[in-house]
Simulated scan of single mutants.
Amino acid sequence: MSGNKADTGPGLILGYGNLTGVSFEERVAAAVAAGADAIGYSVFEFQDAKREGVGAKDLAAIADRSGMRVAELEVGLGFDGPADGRRWGPSWFPWDLPYMDAGVEQDFIELADAFGAHHIVVAASSGGDGAESAARFARICDQAAEVGAKVAIEFLPGTDMPDIATSLAVVQAADRDNGGLCVDNWHFMRGNADEQALRSLPGDRVVVVQLSDGPATPLTEDYFEETLKHRKLFGDGEWDVVGFLGALRACGATAPVSIEILSEQWQARPAAETAAAFVAGARALEPRTS
């Protein structure tokens, strides 16, 4: 089994979306060469791998041979929505992906067990009533707890949990020790940038901090196009990434940092070059990642 479920955290994670169009083996090799502590993996990539006859244990063996931990698993879309094959919203989201259902949940648990993953990231529905959100989140947390993993809600503008306050309310209502938030500075800066909510977050409810940089003014009016294509390397944008991370550390959050720079510009470069630049940039953000 990859990783150690009893440890304190995976350190610096090179998230899944930074390196696309490359094999799992190449992604692992690039992360090792760059000096990342761990990488992320997509449940949708796993579904493709299974169709090719590759299982979770096969992937874990590849990571183990390189000494690389797979710590982050993404993303359970609409964990609180209808598990009947319908397309996940918001309506302008560019990919044809279904709501999270029992099969996706099982894939997450299988991966978390094989990898010894630190956390699973989920996101909310769009246009639901939210009546059972806490109960559904609690159930997923209970499943993840059986394999030693945490579960983090990633707040996304355009969903029923668009910001810190709405997602934290669900986490607190579910009341599971392994449940918390994925705090992504991109969605914070481009959504409800509530500084008071950020600075008053219970530190122990922050499971992971996802970081990128960005321009002060969006490059396009299409939120998801910019989110998926135009994030910036730390220092190339105009945000105070160090201050954002410092605010979370000040509230007691010791969660790992996951690099999430979704950028067409960087994805066109060799994977090893991109990984090296991203990890070096993240290492400079705070002493604890050095």
Rank of each mutant, 00 (worst) to 15 (best):
A174P: 04
L219G: 14
D213M: 09
V183S: 13
E225K: 07
T227R: 07
S167I: 04
V183Q: 14
D204F: 00
P218S: 10
R205D: 01
D163S: 05
T159W: 13
D160Q: 08
A165M: 04
G203V: 00
D175H: 12
A174C: 11
E225I: 02
T227V: 03
L219R: 14
N192K: 15
L181E: 13
G158M: 11
T220N: 12
G180L: 01
P202C: 01
S200P: 02
Q196H: 15
D194W: 10
W186T: 04
N192S: 13
A152Y: 01
G191T: 02
D160G: 04
P202F: 00
D194T: 09
L219E: 13
V147M: 10
R176L: 09
E195D: 13
G214R: 05
T227E: 08
L156E: 13
C182H: 02
I153S: 01
Q172S: 14
R205W: 02
R199Y: 01
E195Q: 15
G179Y: 03
M189R: 14
L211H: 11
V171T: 05
D184N: 15
E146A: 14
G148Y: 03
A193M: 11
P215K: 15
A193F: 08
L201P: 00
E226K: 02
V183N: 11
N185F: 09
S212H: 10
Q210W: 02
Q196D: 15
E225R: 07
G148L: 06
T159Y: 13
S200E: 15
D194A: 10
K229I: 02
A169T: 06
V151S: 05
I153R: 00
A169M: 10
F155Q: 11
V170Y: 09
T217V: 14
C182L: 14
D177W: 07
L156H: 07
E225A: 12
V170S: 08
V183W: 11
S167H: 08
E225S: 09
N178G: 06
N178K: 11
L228P: 01
M189V: 06
E146S: 12
R190W: 08
K150I: 00
D213E: 12
A165V: 10
I153A: 02
C182Q: 04
Q210V: 01
M189S: 13
A165Q: 13
L228A: 11
R205I: 01
E226H: 03
Q196F: 11
L201G: 00
E195A: 15
I153Q: 00
V208R: 03
E146I: 03
V171A: 07
R199G: 01
N192C: 09
D194F: 06
D204G: 00
V183Y: 11
G158E: 13
M189P: 00
P162Y: 14
D222V: 00
R205S: 02
A174G: 09
A197F: 07
D213F: 10
E225D: 14
E154F: 08
A149W: 00
L168I: 07
A193K: 10
